[in-house]
């Protein structure tokens, strides 16, 4: 396979290797916190912060780490950044921190992050790892944004807390509950597979 251009390194995270829709990684935060757009964005940004800094650190110390203890080292690095993000949210955005609850500390075990370290940062340069992390985060945020928009609009009739559907609309409570997350995510994944299939057929 020829080496990807920098642009491709970024855009692959948005579509072809989108962590949610194509790799089906990080399902736990995806399903749990997308009941409101603001929570989706906050979770996306927290994960972005952790992913970018872990990727930079891991790719820059990759030669120092013996193969046998690499996972342990990655987890320590990731956990450090997660705890920093958690404390930061609790200090400056207490309301969001309360809404996200245990899901911020749980970023530690988000497979997107460990997966990127293992599959990419441990084998590539710092620059490429940074671009890769940026692309993956963008894909993650994009997915959370789509999912949480659908759920908040149908489940509460609002978008970012603003009423968007008129008073005639009776909110579908199910959409902000767990079953709504599963149904919406399932339909979205099916849609991306249909689109991908169509793209391949056209080639």
């Amino acid at each position: 396979m020829p080496p990807r251009s920098i642009g491709e390194e970024f855009t692959k995270g948005l579509w072809h290797e989108n962590p949610i829709f194509r790799q089906l990684l990080g399902m736990c935060p995806t399903l749990a916190v997308t009941n409101a757009v603001i929570n989706g964005i906050a979770m996306g940004l927290a994960t972005t912060f952790v992913l970018i800094f872990s990727s930079i650190v891991v790719s820059s110390i990759k030669k120092l780490i013996p193969n046998q203890v690499r996972i342990a080292s990655y987890i320590v690095v990731i956990a450090t950044f997660v705890t920093m993000a958690d404390r930061f949210l609790a200090a400056f955005f207490p309301l969001i921190s309360k809404d996200l609850g245990p899901y911020v500390p749980l970023i530690v075990v988000n497979c997107i992050i460990l997966g990127r370290q293992e599959a990419f940062s441990s084998k590539n340069s710092v620059g490429r790892s940074f671009i890769d992390a940026l692309g993956m985060s963008a894909g993650f945020i994009l997915a959370l944004l789509i999912l949480s928009s659908i759920r908040e609009i149908l489940g509460a009739g609002t978008f970012l807390g603003h009423q968007v559907l008129g008073s005639w609309f009776e909110p579908w409570v199910i959409m902000i509950l767990p079953p709504g997350a599963f149904i919406t995510l399932g339909i979205l994944i099916a849609l991306t597979f249909v689109i991908e299939h169509k793209i391949k057929q056209r080639r």
Binding site: E170, W172, V173, I174, M175, L177, P179
Partner: peptide, 10 residues
């Protein structure tokens, strides 16, 4: 079941 969860009051 969908309706029961979506519109619990109605």
């Amino acid at each position: 079941a969908f309706l029961q969860t979506a519109f619990p009051v109605a």
